[in-house]
Computed example of a mutant assay.
Amino acid sequence: MAAIVAPTSQTCPASLPPSVFTLPQTAQLEALFTIIRDKDTPRGEFLFYSDRIIRLLVEEGLNHLPVIPKTVQTPTGATYEGVGFEGKICGVSILRAGEAMEAGLREVCRSVRIGKILIQRDEETTQPKLFYSKFPQDIASRYVLLLDPMLATGGSAIKAVEVLKEHGVPEERIIFINLISAPEGLRNFCSKFPQTRVITGWIDKGLNEKAYIIPGLGDFGERRYCE
């Protein structure tokens, strides 16, 4: 009988900002991450297993939305004192890799509105620059699930939240969801927006000299969309 191996250690969440939350670090979760990290994993399997992780992340993100008391009548004629979500939500994906997380959101939230934002590095200033954004007209009154698979330095995510705030979204109504984070990016992001919650699947060791997440999984968008 094979031995049960404990999940590989990662950056301790206790050493990170209190607004950072990880998925339960189970052996199953590490097995899923091992598959998508493997450079030899075929694209079809990469899609399937990354989608499984994204679904778990979206479910966890919904756990952080506020609820209010709600009373309903059951088919037995009884009254049930339950809860309902406090307000409307929407997703905002950071293009292009963030689009891969939209299906996972739609699977658990019927008819959810989704906005898009394109941020790229300005070659002259080396700073993140907004190139395109399109949001629901009433986004200021919604809770926003910001979607991007990888958090490296945090520059794109920070710029995305700045744009959302410019459109009237309070930072405490934003939940940033990603698969893999670098500690440097988490600290950078959370120091800028301490009221925005971050839901991440795994916290890696850090960044190398090229600002790539190590061990990471490579370019998520390339592996997702390119044959």
Score class of each variant (00 low, 15 high):
M1E: 11
M1S: 14
A3V: 08
V5I: 13
T11K: 05
C12Q: 06
C12F: 00
S15F: 13
L16G: 13
S19P: 00
V20C: 08
F21W: 07
T22N: 04
L23D: 08
Q25T: 07
Q25K: 14
T26V: 05
T26L: 05
A27P: 05
A27W: 02
Q28C: 06
A31F: 13
L32E: 15
I36A: 01
I36S: 02
T41E: 09
P42H: 10
G44L: 14
E45D: 15
L47D: 07
Y49E: 09
S50K: 08
D51V: 01
R55H: 14
L56C: 06
L56V: 01
L56E: 13
G61K: 07
G61N: 02
G61Q: 13
L62A: 09
H64W: 14
P66G: 03
V67Q: 15
I68W: 00
K70W: 14
K70N: 14
V72S: 08
V72N: 00
T74G: 01
P75I: 07
G77V: 09
G77P: 11
G77H: 10
T79Q: 15
Y80N: 01
G84A: 15
G87M: 04
K88V: 05
C90D: 07
V92C: 06
V92F: 05
I94G: 03
I94N: 07
A97P: 10
A97S: 14
E99T: 01
M101K: 01
M101N: 09
M101W: 05
E102A: 04
E102F: 06
E102L: 09
L105I: 03
V108M: 10
C109T: 13
R110I: 08
R110G: 01
R113K: 15
I114Y: 05
K116G: 03
I117H: 07
I119F: 07
Q120A: 07
D122W: 10
E123T: 11
E123W: 00
T125R: 10
T125E: 04
Q127A: 15
P128H: 09
S133Y: 13
Q137H: 08
Q137A: 13
L146S: 04
P149S: 11
L151K: 11
T153K: 03
T153L: 06
G154N: 01
G154K: 08
V163A: 01
V163Q: 09
L164P: 02
H167I: 00
R173T: 02
I175F: 07
F176W: 07
F176Q: 03
F176A: 12
F176R: 00
N178Y: 00
L179W: 02
I180H: 02
S181R: 02
S181G: 00
P183F: 07
P183C: 14
G185N: 04
L186E: 01
R187K: 15
N188Y: 12
N188P: 00
C190H: 03
K192V: 12
K192Y: 00
Q195Y: 08
T200A: 06
G206W: 09
L207F: 12
A211G: 00
Y212I: 10
Y212V: 01
P215S: 12
P215D: 03
G218S: 11
G218L: 10
D219T: 05
F220H: 03
G221C: 06
E222T: 08
E222G: 12
R223S: 05
C226D: 05
